[in-house]
Design a binder for these strands. Structure first.
Lengths: 231, 231
DNA sequence: ACCTGAACACCGTTCAAGT
DNA sequence: ACCTGAACACCGTTCAAGT
């Protein structure tokens, strides 16, 4: 993945699409989202900034490729495995996507800033359609349901990442919850009584447990709670 | 809202927080998200760029204020009106938020780029808790459900806006669907058979009708489909 | 075909004035 | 207290070379 040297050599062929994406991710993790600039990536690769324009038409295309790489890190084999109940496979997908993306806070903007039409995003969508089909939905509702799932997962991650963004590695869950709790405790109970009273639950939105709860509600919504019973 | 001239005059007091937010929105609508820069806003107001730093600590704070303004445009009175069924009020809120935010594509990044902790966002959250409570959920589930709703609405809008972003006014729905349809028709049916077969449904994700469908599934998920029957 | 140097037209932010 | 001019350290992108 790091190199690969495709095509004929020409005068140099120092770079690869994949090498550029790797450098961008490296930079993202080490120095944060703002550091992911054309000039920064080029420096990371030891190359002049404008060299990247041989491989990508503009910065947005680079970011789209980074997003597609992150999405493609999930093993689609696990999603297709018919030995496991479909609901469980959807859980795995959603939870894995979430933790993987929260490992790179700052990547959220790349995921939501452009249509996810990369090859790996398409492959994921295809696999998702198959799984949701097993839930007994017809073609039309299967398509809608898989989109609903994507909306839920990406929406959740976006709202979680918004509270973290600047930091390079997302702090542990307990710490994020504590910070949120402090913010909600500062809400005046006189003007926002319900909010203040729910501060405890609210501060845990940002939690794996709550993410699971929402995920089950979404699945119940399109598959019916009955489906939860027989898994 | 445009001016207001609070506090003592001092040497000038030309600006207001609100005037700055207004100028930013003006710029957003007229020249797109990339034009919303500190320098751009300042030019819009006929002022030196660094003048804005008297009112906001940095650019991120300006963008957060813009996001709060957009959220606050919804009339909370309608949400609290006990004469209408709660489910209908949730629909109104979600649909109004969606169309309002799609009127400003490019605002999505501002909504998802930072925690929504502005005064108007808090007020909306408070009202939402009250409505969801009417659905018969206890305090804990009401908090979770209202967050789920927000995730759905903002997630949907983000994915929709991602396909539009650069354009200043979002093109009409029919045109957006057609563009999406063309993209899906280009998907190779041999590698992605389910995706290609569903191209028709997929291209309509971006549609008010589909948004309603997902919204109902989400509400069914936490309130039970039974609630749909008696409204 | 692929890379470079130099340049263009921008950014956000800071700092030392001025009033 | 509020605004300005000037500067700093950056951006993305383009263009005319060089190999």
């Amino acid at each position: 993945m790091t190199t690969a040297q495709r095509g004929r050599p020409g005068p140099r062929r120092t770079l690869t699409d994949e090498a550029i994406v790797t450098a961008a991710l490296e930079l993202l993790d080490r120095r944060g989202a703002d550091a992911v600039s054309i000039r920064g990536i080029a420096a990371e690769l030891g190359v002049a900034p404008n060299a990247l324009y041989t491989y990508f038409p503009d910065k947005a295309a680079v970011l789209r490729a980074v997003a597609d790489r992150l999405i493609g890190e999930y093993d689609l084999g696990a999603l297709a495995n018919p030995a496991r109940p479909w609901r469980q496979r959807l859980h795995d997908l959603a939870l894995s996507l979430r933790s993987r993306l929260l490992d790179h806070p700052g990547a959220t903007a790349m995921l939501l800033g452009a249509p996810m039409d990369g090859p790996r995003a398409l492959a994921l969508g295809e696999a998702l359609l198959a799984v949701v089909g097993e839930a007994g939905l017809d073609e039309r509702d299967a398509a809608r349901a898989s989109y609903l799932l994507i909306v839920y997962v990406l929406g959740s991650i976006a709202l979680e990442a918004a509270e973290v963004e600047p930091t390079r590695p997302a702090p542990p869950e307990a710490q994020r919850v504590a910070a949120r709790k402090a913010a909600f405790d500062a809400v005046p109970a006189t003007t926002y009584p319900l909010t203040a009273a729910s501060a405890d639950v609210m501060s845990r939105y940002i939690t794996t447990e709550q993410f699971r709860w929402g995920l089950d509600r979404v699945i119940d919504g399109f598959a019916g709670p009955a489906a939860a019973a027989h898994q």
